[in-house]
Each structure stands twice: as C-alpha cells, then as structure tokens.
C-alpha cells in the first residue's frame, strides 16, 4: 500500500482537507460538464417533444404548451413542475387545430407514457404516440410497432369513451381493434387515453375559443420547455 508510506497516522485535519479538496475539484468538474451540456440536452428534449406533437396532430406546424390555471387554459410562460401540461397545435396560419395530451398509466409490465392528439371540434382522437414503455418484446411492444394498431387512433371518437374490441370486430367510431395476443397492453393504452380525456375534457374551453398562438412568446416555434 503506497499510502502506508506515511507511517505515522496522519492528523484528522489532513484527512478532512484531502476529502474537502477532492470534493471541491469534483464539484467544479461536475458543474462544468453540466453547464456545457445543458443547452444540447434541452434542445434534444424539445425537439423530441415537437416531433411527437406534430406526429399525433396531422397538419400542425406550430405548437405551444398550455396549462390549466385559475379555471382557464393559458399559454405557458414559465414551467411549473407540478402543473399538468397539454400542447396546443396550430397550423401554418396560426389557426388552432387540436391538443396533444400526455397521459401515463400502468401497462402489462411497467408504466406506459404516451401522447395523443385530440381535435375538440370533431371530438376525435387523431393520433397516438407511445413515449415510453417496457412492454414484452414481440407482443406488448406492438402498441407502437404495429402500424395498424397505431393507425387505428387516426380517427377515433371519444364519445362516450374509447373501447378496445377483438381484432376485426370494430363496428362503431369509438371502437378500436385490439392487438391479438396483446390484449392487456392494448387495453392499457385505451384506458390511459380515456382517463386523460376525462381529466381534461372539463378543463378545455368550448371549441372555437381556444387560446391563440402566442407568437411573441414562442416566436413561432413554441418549443415549450
């Protein structure tokens, strides 16, 4: 042991000092790396979110984050962690198209987090994207790998609620074909959307009076946080 060369046991002060200096240098290094990577990380996250929002709301090219505050939806000025957020989607002319609503809930194995597009004027879900899931590869992961299932959310009525039915037996506009062999995961997705829809439907303003796109704040990109 090289350190044992200091035969006499070193004073406590020296031990404390060594640790303090090591901690100090380490702290400075960590702050340095944090500060230098933060812009890239934030940009990555924002880009991912935008891509997801644009995917679930066809025809949308601008977005802004909205929170429910004091009984109405307001464009998000600054992020407040505890508030739940929806994203308003707008077309090129700044006209409101629909909301992208995040939802999460238990799947077959772990929490499924997703984002779905909702057009209030038509009372329809128009798209769904799974953000995070750990469903069984080959079965449950079809909730995002099975193009047919995902496409099933392209025009789905939310009245009175979405129902997953056995594959091939879709008969009403609010029914969607579940995935054969992954009934539980399919139903979980539907349940998450239904729950998020119930939670948000009373908060959303009547169609036609959605908050306008706040150009000055978002500068047309409205990347959110």
């Amino acid at each position: 042991m090289s350190a044992s060369r200091d035969t006499a046991s070193p004073s406590s002060l020296r031990l404390v000092l060594t640790l303090a200096i090591a901690g100090l240098i380490s702290g400075i290094a960590i702050i340095g790396i944090y500060e230098s990577t933060l812009p890239t990380i934030t940009a990555n996250k924002a880009r991912e979110l935008r891509a997801a929002v644009f995917k679930v709301l066809p025809g949308v090219s601008q977005m802004q984050a909205l929170v429910y505050r004091d009984g109405e939806l307001v464009a998000l000025a600054e992020a407040d962690k505890d508030e739940s957020v929806v994203y308003g989607g707008y077309d090129e002319r700044g006209e409101f198209v629909g909301y992208a609503v995040p939802g999460a809930g238990p799947g077959f194995q772990d929490t499924i987090a997703l984002l779905y597009g909702y057009v209030p004027a038509e009372q329809q879900v128009v798209g769904m994207e799974i953000l995070e899931s750990r469903e069984t590869p080959g079965l449950g992961d079809k909730i995002y790998k099975d193009a047919e299932f995902v496409a099933g959310f392209g025009a789905l009525s939310t009245e009175p609620e979405i129902i997953a039915v056995k594959k091939g037996s879709k008969a009403a506009p609010n029914e969607i074909d579940a995935i054969t062999g992954a009934t539980i995961s399919s139903k979980a997705v539907v349940r998450i959307i239904n729950e998020a829809h119930v939670e948000w439907s009373e908060r959303l303003p009547p169609p036609g009076s959605e908050p306008a796109l706040n150009e000055s704040e978002s500068g047309g990109t409205g990347a959110g946080r």
């Binding site: 350190a3 031990l15 060594t18 290094a29």
Partner: peptide
C-alpha cells in the same frame, strides 16, 4: 497524497465525478 484512512472515499469521489461526466456527455 491520499491518506490510506480515507482512500476509499477519495476513490469514490473520483469515480463518481467521471461517471457524472459520462452521464451528461451521453445524454447530450
């Protein structure tokens, strides 16, 4: 320079620093 009484703590501080750097770099 590292006294043997606190060597494990020092090793961990050093390792943890490198891990944090790797973590943020990969994330970015």
């Amino acid at each position: 320079w590292i006294p043997k009484q606190v060597r494990i703590s020092c090793f961990i501080i050093i390792i943890a620093t490198f891990v944090t750097i790797a973590d943020y770099t990969l994330l970015a």
